[in-house]
Design a protein around this nucleic acid. Structure first.
Lengths: 121, 121
DNA sequence: CGGTATCCGTACGGATACTG
DNA sequence: CAGTATCCGTACGGATACCG
């Protein structure tokens, strides 16, 4: 095995696919919503404002497939489904939260920069 | 001003727009390419493998508008254009690099998880 | 060299309604 | 409750060719 197996700057490297997955529209929000533990489908829907059930399902399936989220179905009536981060998913929490925190704390600067830029053009 | 002005979990919060911008397909790669200093358009093209000139221009314009990248044109023949991160852009370097590093170091796990998942389905 | 212009395909996300 | 099914629009990215 090599010392640097993956390189996002290489267009053919799988890590680039991974980078885009975790950088998609909803993944960061869902992962962040699950940081404190288990949530049910409907709770996730509320926690992640604005997401439609279809897209939530889609994203959760992808996250499950990628080994970031674990899905547990309880055979009750009505049925209960719980989602939680796997160890791999939890390891993503830190990096993702850093970006999220940056976005929240610098959103003002960016909005400001946009206004300034648009004013000159 | 409020203590928590921005919240990505709020669908109407501008920080969510910001989060999606910096999480788009090329932004992390471009920012990472510029981490060591100034690059010209054609150097960026090479550094970020697989990007077309049109999309590179588009992304750079957005980054410039958002105050993350500075564009300098030198009136020479042939013309020289240099791109570099602003202070704001450099502040994004850390968070983004954390995600990039995660993607590179965990790409293997994810690929593996996918195979396992696909095998059961 | 550093882009633009043009055209194109699709894949993603959204809205709504329905179901086991 | 936890999804699916269906339909839809567009916006994004890509390929190619051309320009100041």
């Amino acid at each position: 095995m090599e010392s640097i197996p993956f390189d996002v700057m290489d267009p053919d490297c799988p890590s680039r696919v991974v980078l885009q997955r975790i950088g998609d529209k909803w993944t960061p929000l869902i992962v962040h919503a699950l940081k404190d533990g288990t949530l049910r489908f409907s709770e996730l829907r509320v926690a992640v404002g604005g997401i439609t059930p279809k897209v939530l399902t889609q994203t959760l399936r992808t996250l499950e497939r990628d080994g970031l989220v674990e899905r547990t179905v309880f055979a009750e009536v009505p049925v209960r489904v719980e989602y939680r981060l796997t160890a791999l998913g939890e390891s993503l929490l830190g990096p993702l939260d850093a970006v999220r925190a940056w976005a929240e704390s610098h959103a003002g600067n960016i909005l400001q920069a946009r206004d300034a830029f648009d004013a000159t053009v």
